[in-house]
């Protein structure tokens, strides 16, 4: 398994750079993961999404779909696409320290 250094810590990642163990994630790693996805600065809007993903995972054991982020997280779909262009579900999951989402929606 590949590893990389994020915020001074070595973590396991998959072939596409997604963290394998979300327990290893810390908030300090998020900006570095975001840069890999072409997002140079994490705004409050980004953090609202990241925090919702982390919280929802703790409560449900799954990362939320785009629909759930809208209905349960109060994050409008259009906003999500603006915050994480070219792949909101994948990018937000990666920055929040999770593996690539496997669902179709």
């Amino acid at each position: 398994m590949a590893t990389k250094t994020l915020a001074g810590k070595t973590v396991e990642v998959d072939g596409e750079g997604f963290m394998v163990n979300h327990e290893e994630w810390t908030e300090e790693m998020a900006p570095e993961l975001a840069k890999e996805e072409g997002i140079n600065e994490l705004t409050d809007g980004h953090w609202k999404v990241i925090n919702f993903i982390r919280k929802d995972y703790q409560e449900t054991g799954q990362i939320p779909t785009i629909r759930r982020m809208k209905n349960a997280g109060g994050i409008p779909t259009s906003e999500l696409y603006e915050l994480f262009p070219q792949g909101p579900a994948k990018k937000s999951a990666k920055i929040a320290g999770f593996t690539k989402p496997q669902g179709c929606v």
Binding site: I66, Y81, P85, Q86, G87, P88, A89, K90, C104, V105
Partner: peptide
């Protein structure tokens, strides 16, 4: 589903 999935992939 295909249209939505396309957008999800950029």
């Amino acid at each position: 589903i295909m249209a939505n999935g396309a957008r999800m992939e950029g």
